[in-house]
């Protein structure tokens, strides 16, 4: 087995293992897995409405996945996507409700605001990592909670007058499209998918086709070697966090300007940021991989909502399967050992 084939096979095995364990859980708890998976399929691809919803769901997943993957390629674990996502969402909606501008300026401005907000939020852990060698995992986790409470405060006390929900963003700043909604039987599909696909392309181009990308990847492979070769490691660390935060902020704009069109006070996290970790890991931290694994997770999430209706299975089953997939991808070492054993036997 070639190395390339193996690295492609590992995530597929992880997904299969996740589904198998999920099936076992269903059988043990007395549900019928066949009806459950049929309901899952029907709920994600059975109808044009559901397809629209799946696309709507995986749009922020792509960007959240890119936010994790980009930092990962530079050797950083951006677990703060959730926080960057929340500030991006807030900034987009804020610009969306506060100004009256022609669409050609207003929409890009709102999207840009989300990107900048996310980037700034990620700049802090990047700076602390570069300047003080503070581990980015802990700082970004803490920043998530700061983002949650601060954005709740701003929504409640600054944007609105003690309300839990902002107004809808102005018509000139929305990503929604009547045409897209009408061709998908009035799902919440919006133009954000275009931005997400551009995001994938930008990440690929930046990392694989520019000098800066080469530096970023070098830092990811070996900081000391990169430093020895005359690259500015600290600058690249900060830059990677800022770009990753920008992707995460854009993911927030997808929800703020597209799916919902407003921002609400939240009791807890949305989970998009953490699902982004799953997306990036399964996608092997490449932009194409992220794209496909976002489709898988988006379909799972949307299809899950149909499971209680059609098969009587709690939709949390899909969360279990996603967690198991993360678990198995993380344990890919053991899958590789297993694959090595098989391929050795074949040689004999």
């Amino acid at each position: 087995m070639s190395k390339r084939f193996k690295s492609l096979l590992t995530p597929i095995i992880a997904v299969l293992l996740g589904i198998i364990v999920g099936t076992i859980i269903m059988v043990v708890s007395g549900y019928n897995p066949v009806t459950a998976f049929t309901a899952l399929w029907n709920g994600s691809f059975g109808d044009i409405y559901y397809i629209g919803e799946v696309v709507r769901q995986f749009t922020p997943y792509i960007l959240a996945g890119l936010a994790v993957a980009f930092a990962f390629r530079v050797g950083l674990f951006n677990i703060g996507v959730e926080g960057q996502f929340l500030v991006g969402w807030l900034a987009a909606v804020w610009v969306g409700v506060a100004f009256d501008l022609p669409r050609i300026i207003h929409l890009p401005l709102a999207v840009l605001a989300a990107m900048v907000a996310g980037a700034l939020w990620a700049f802090i852990p990047g700076l602390l990592k570069a300047r003080f060698r503070v581990h980015e995992v802990i700082v970004t986790i803490m920043m998530n909670y700061v983002a949650l409470h601060v954005s709740n405060y701003i929504i409640k006390n600054i944007i609105t007058d003690n309300k839990d929900k902002t107004d809808l963003v102005k018509e000139s700043a929305t990503l929604r499209s009547d045409w897209l909604q009408s061709i998908t039987d009035y799902s919440r599909l919006h133009w954000g998918i275009v931005i997400a696909i551009i995001g994938c392309f930008v990440m690929w181009f930046l990392l694989e086709r520019t000098t800066r990308g080469f530096e970023l990847r070098s830092v990811g492979f070996n900081q000391h070697a990169a430093h020895y070769a005359g690259m500015n490691v600290n600058k690249n660390i900060i830059l990677s966090m800022v770009i990753a935060g920008g992707f995460a902020g854009l993911a927030g704009a997808m929800e703020g300007l597209g799916t919902f069109g407003y921002a609400t006070v939240k009791g807890g996290f949305t989970g998009v940021g953490f699902d982004g970790i799953a997306v990036a890991l399964l996608g092997g931290n490449t932009s194409l991989g992220v794209f496909f694994s976002a489709i898988l997770f988006g379909a799972l999430k949307v299809g899950a909502l149909n499971m209680p209706l059609e098969a009587g299975v709690p939709n949390e089953l899909v969360d279990i399967i996603i967690a198991l997939i993360v678990f198995f991808v993380a344990s890919s070492y053991i899958i590789r050992v297993f694959l090595d054993r098989i391929s050795k036997k074949e040689v004999k």
Binding site: F77, I79, V137, F274, I277, A278, L281, D319, I320, I322, A323, L324, V326, F327, V329, A330, S331
Partner: peptide, 10 residues
Amino acid sequence: TVSGVAINLL
């Protein structure tokens, strides 16, 4: 960290 995330999700 990844395994911890999986524990939280699971």
